[in-house]
Design a protein around this nucleic acid. Structure first.
Lengths: 112, 112
DNA sequence: GTTTAATGACCTTTATATGGTTCACGAGAC
DNA sequence: GTCTCGTGAACCATATAAAGGTCATTAAAC
């Protein structure tokens, strides 16, 4: 970022990220997998996995989801097939939706 | 990253990120909110929101979750309270769990 | 039709997230 | 006791993600 941007996160957002990290850590422990091994399998560094499990919001979502998927933490409480189907459905809906939203004019003429 | 790392993502991971982005875009359209407005409210740039909605895995998870929370896309199919409770529960469990996992010695002596 | 606004796709600059490497601590295994 | 392994934290170099801007296209609103 050009100008030093101090990003703030809502408590809900911070909780969600921390929860996800905690779930990953829990699952990893139950699977008796070392941090290094999970990191290798996810294609990330161990330090990165540490930040993920700690709930650092500044991690790329792809790495987090990858780690989560490996240890079996399902996002959206959905299994893979359902996810793919939902994705397909979403794509269809998006294709039909208007590409741009436009706010209705605030000054509505209702004096006719 | 020092050495140019080409990260690969599993199909499930890519689908999950794309699904989340699609859900955000859907929700934003239904709420009749412009991309600029959502970006402002989430404290991110419009270009960033574009990448999020497109399902780019290289976005910080905090920004994605923030945008999702604003438009009402709940992660884990859980409401805020349940999330916070779950987080608390997770913290407790983590406190009890051993801090390190150690693989059992492969060469088990079962000849006694 | 015209006008206005929202979006998508660029590009450049710059702050920073990441990978890699250390080191220290803790806990099993021996 | 010693030795190993897993973890947590800190540091550094650098690839790069993000912000901000511009422009073209599109589509609502008029």
């Amino acid at each position: 970022m050009p100008k030093s941007i101090v990003r703030t996160y809502s408590p809900y957002c911070r909780d969600a990220v921390m929860l996800l990290g905690g779930l990953i850590r829990e699952a990893r422990n139950e699977l008796k997998i070392t941090a290094q091994e999970l990191a290798d399998r996810a294609g990330i560094s161990r330090g990165m996995l540490q930040r993920i499990e700690k709930g650092n919001p500044k991690c790329e979502i792809g790495a987090v989801f990858e780690a989560a998927a490996i240890v079996g933490v399902k996002l959206f409480d959905a299994d893979e097939n359902a996810l793919a189907k939902h994705l397909h459905h979403t794509r269809e809906k998006l294709a039909l939706l208007p590409k741009s939203v436009r706010k209705k004019n605030k000054t509505v003429r209702d004096d006719f």
